[in-house]
Computed example of a mutant assay.
Amino acid sequence: MKAVYTERHRSHDPQFFLVRGVVKRTTEQPERADRLLAGLKAGKHQLIEPVAFGQGPRLRVHSPEYLNFLAEAWEAWSALGDAGPEMIANMHPVRNAATYPTHIVGRLGWHTVDTACPIGPGTWAGACAASDVAATAAQMLMDGEDAAYALCRPPGHHAYRDLAGGFCFLNNSAIATAHLRQKHERVAILDVDVHHGNGTQGIFYERSDVLTVSIHADPTAFYPFVWGFAHERGAGAGLGANLNIPLAIGTRDDGYLQALDVAAKAIRNFAPGALVIALGLDASEHDPLAGLAVTTEGFRRIGAAIARMGLPTVFVQEGGYLSDILGANLTAVLGGFEAAR
């Protein structure tokens, strides 16, 4: 399996992270990519540079106003003269009878759902690079590859059509999916990150051409807290095209694989032409966020189960934070997929 990667992700190096009222350095650090690269090297995956697609793939998913905000944000913030080293909103209007703001502080609040996505001088460039990585991997499937891996950083599955959140700015998994829709009438997304893919759900919630499935830690006790419940099944034309499978905190391999069996059945019934895996490795027993407890062998079994779905597959990297086992877990899930294919 070929892997798409660019060093341009390093321009995004956030520092701020608010955890239960305590400011810490974020766990979404450039070092994550180094550890993932080590996992790719161990698996002998060939690295491919992404194609620069421009705004086209991003505009299929995100609003023009949101993309303009991200592109202009740092310059406007810097022009204030008394602003901090990162953009962090101090207000969120939640859009109750609200008017779209023109001031950068207002726009920042309008376009961010939480404080976990600080914007720095290189954030826009890094986010665009990640979206190109995702689109390139999707294009590889369209050009005949059976599977491809996209090492996207920053991640994307918490980003809505016009909202950043949860370390995410551009929804790379959604961008890959929309790109594949140029060829396939139906595409399925399977999100195996420990956190619910709330942004991806929001983007496709009223669409019948994309099935969104998310296996994640119980949202009553884990981010994003207010999305990711089993009763959220889609709306309008998309009713029935969203499946959430929340798991008890600490769920181990066998419980996770049982949930994956349920997801696989839903995907088979949907009969998509291609599959996008929002690959979170933060379900690991060693991940610092400690939501689920999947072992390295468990990740190998997850990869094998995905392979048995028999679909052209793009793996888009989502979470998985700084632990010594991060690279080995990536090697395991891709290796399990290849061995079962």
Rank of each mutant, 00 (worst) to 15 (best):
A3S: 05
D13M: 04
P14Y: 04
Q15E: 14
L18N: 04
V19P: 00
E28Q: 10
Q29T: 13
D34N: 13
R35M: 08
R35D: 02
L36Y: 08
H45F: 13
R58A: 15
P64C: 08
L67I: 07
E72A: 13
E75A: 15
A76D: 15
A79G: 10
L80T: 01
A83C: 11
P85W: 13
E86V: 08
M87H: 06
P93V: 08
N96I: 12
T102I: 08
G106W: 01
W110L: 12
H111R: 11
T112F: 14
A116S: 14
A116P: 07
A125E: 15
A125Q: 15
A127E: 05
C128K: 10
A129I: 03
A148T: 04
P155V: 07
G156R: 05
L163A: 06
S173K: 01
A174F: 03
H184L: 11
R186F: 12
L190Q: 06
H196N: 12
Q201K: 01
T212I: 06
I215F: 10
H216L: 07
D218W: 10
D218A: 01
F222V: 10
F225D: 12
W227S: 13
R233E: 14
A235W: 07
G238Y: 02
G240A: 11
A241P: 05
A241Q: 14
P246M: 06
L247R: 02
Q258C: 04
A259N: 09
A259H: 08
A259S: 14
D261N: 10
I267C: 08
V276W: 06
I277V: 15
E285C: 12
L289W: 07
A290Y: 09
A290C: 15
A290E: 13
A290N: 15
G291R: 02
L292S: 03
A293C: 15
A293E: 12
T295Y: 13
E297V: 09
R300P: 02
G310P: 11
L311W: 07
V314D: 01
I325T: 12
I325W: 10
V333P: 03
E338L: 15
